[in-house]
Design a protein around this nucleic acid. Sequence first.
DNA 1: AAACCATACAACCGCGAATTT
DNA 2: AAAATTCGCGGTTGTATGGTT
Length: 199
Amino acid sequence: MERKEEEMMSHVRRGLWKPEEDMILRNCVESHGEGNWADISRRSGLKRGGKSCRLRWKNYLRPNIKRGGMSPQEQDLIIRMHKLLGNRWSLIAGRLPGRTDNEVKNYWNTHLNKKSNSRKQNATESVEAPTDKPVMSTGVRDSHGDQGEGEEGTTNWMEESNCLAYDDHIGSPLPLISHYTDTFLFDPCFAFMDCFPLL
DNA sequence: AAACCATACAACCGCGAATTT
DNA sequence: AAAATTCGCGGTTGTATGGTT
């Protein structure tokens, strides 16, 4: 449906955004506010779909976006959060001020995935292979009921979480970045984490 | 200098949830 | 209650860039 709508718009532009487009989008969002992306797409006059506008704003134009390399603390937090939550990039990003889910996901796939795998490999050489499943694999969003990953896992995560008190791969305590972004008021995952400052 | 390859990251796609009509 | 619309997420793809041969 959305697609159809976008196709109907004459010549929807795709690919990399130009600085002029960024400027137009920024002005448009600043004057009309975030939210209705289809409307912003129309008002801006950009030949971009609402989805594309939203993505561009959220990942690059939004104020307080942090660019550049991840600090060791951020890397460490991503690894730990990923272990805890799995590929819940938006939740992980919510814990990293100025970072977006897309950026965290890309960073994981290009840098940390390998690192984590090699660590895992080293670990398996000396110890039994640890389970790959995140502690909270059946998290908040799985009220969606998709993926069915939690089926066999009536995980007692409170119990399992104790295993994370000392991370066997890294060994330093999880830095607690105590901020709550404007996008969430209460998330059980974070509440969980805040109960265990040593995680 | 050019061709090839690997890596990093920006953007797109498809899907499901939430909201509106 | 049902259909239509919009939004957000995670997976995947495309492309620019740097390194190597």
